[in-house]
Simulated assay, not measured.
Amino acid sequence: MKRFDFKTQARIFIKCTAAAVLSLAFILSGCSDKSAVSSDALPVIIIGSDEYEPYNFSDKNGNPAGIDVEIASEAFLRMGYKAQFKNIVWDEKDEMLADGKVDCLWGCFSMNGREDKYRWVGPYMNSRQAVAVRADSNIYALSDLSGKKVAVQSSSKPEEILSQNSADIPQVSGLYCFVRTEYIFAALRKNYVDAVAGHEYMLRVFINESDNKYRLLDESLLLSKLGIAFAKDNDSALPEKLRATLYDMKNDGTLAKIAVKYGLDPNTALGGITLE
């Protein structure tokens, strides 16, 4: 009959307990490291953008929010980076990109007409540029803008379109360019201009907050393709990796979910978008 040795069993129990504690420490340490890597320990990608709701704006706590902020944060996290939005003067975007002060430009940035100026990732979403006027205005079509005064954000697509000498574009009598979008609305409120042009969502928010004293024209000034701009000479693998990640996010429904969250029709926002 085998004798029960209390001292031997005690030593075995202590060794097993120590091993279990050590294993648990390794597990917890691994979890801690994973948590750290998923946040502040990740390498940072600096994204140049300006305030342009609903794509990039500051929430009530002053933190970056919006469609592009959420897409970028998720995409770069999947790639092993942390997205950091840097609010810039949009007129200085090319200099900041060339100087390396930002890694890319991302903020409702239209690729239309700029296809050869940057190394693009996209298009990842569609955007409609529209025109808003006072409710009692006699402007009902884009052709009615001929001879009128229009306010736009400087360096925006509406500025480019309305400054062209084209038979398809109405010749306005004055094109007033402002650095910040709130200034274009102030110009319309004070009757300094007859119309304002910009992103459809931005104009709808303005109209809703103004008790419908203004209205949107049915015609689109432009349906633009949005992209992420890297420097033309950027030869890294990052842009193509980002493209592949956005492709996955479109196919798994992430892009549509973010679009719906901010009041966009996902069929319009993502129609024709392939990212292939």
Rank of each mutant, 00 (worst) to 15 (best):
D5P: 05
A10I: 08
K15I: 15
T17P: 03
A18Q: 04
A20G: 14
F26C: 15
I27G: 09
D33W: 07
P43K: 05
I45Y: 01
I46M: 02
G66A: 07
I67Y: 01
E74C: 12
M79S: 09
M79Y: 00
G80H: 02
K93R: 15
S110R: 08
R114E: 08
K117P: 04
R119D: 00
R119H: 07
W120Q: 06
V121N: 04
G122Y: 01
M125A: 12
Q129W: 02
A130Y: 00
A132L: 08
A135N: 07
D144C: 09
G147Y: 00
Q153M: 14
Q153A: 12
S156D: 03
S163W: 03
D168M: 14
Y176R: 14
T181M: 10
Y183L: 15
F185I: 13
R189C: 13
A195E: 01
A195K: 06
H199L: 15
V205H: 06
N208R: 15
S210D: 05
N212Y: 09
K213C: 14
R215T: 12
D218F: 05
S224Q: 02
F230C: 11
N234G: 11
N234H: 05
D235T: 15
A237N: 07
L238A: 06
L242N: 04
A244K: 06
A244M: 03
T245R: 05
G253S: 09
I258D: 01
A259M: 11
V260G: 07
K261D: 03
Y262D: 05
P266R: 01
L270G: 13
G271Y: 00
T274D: 01
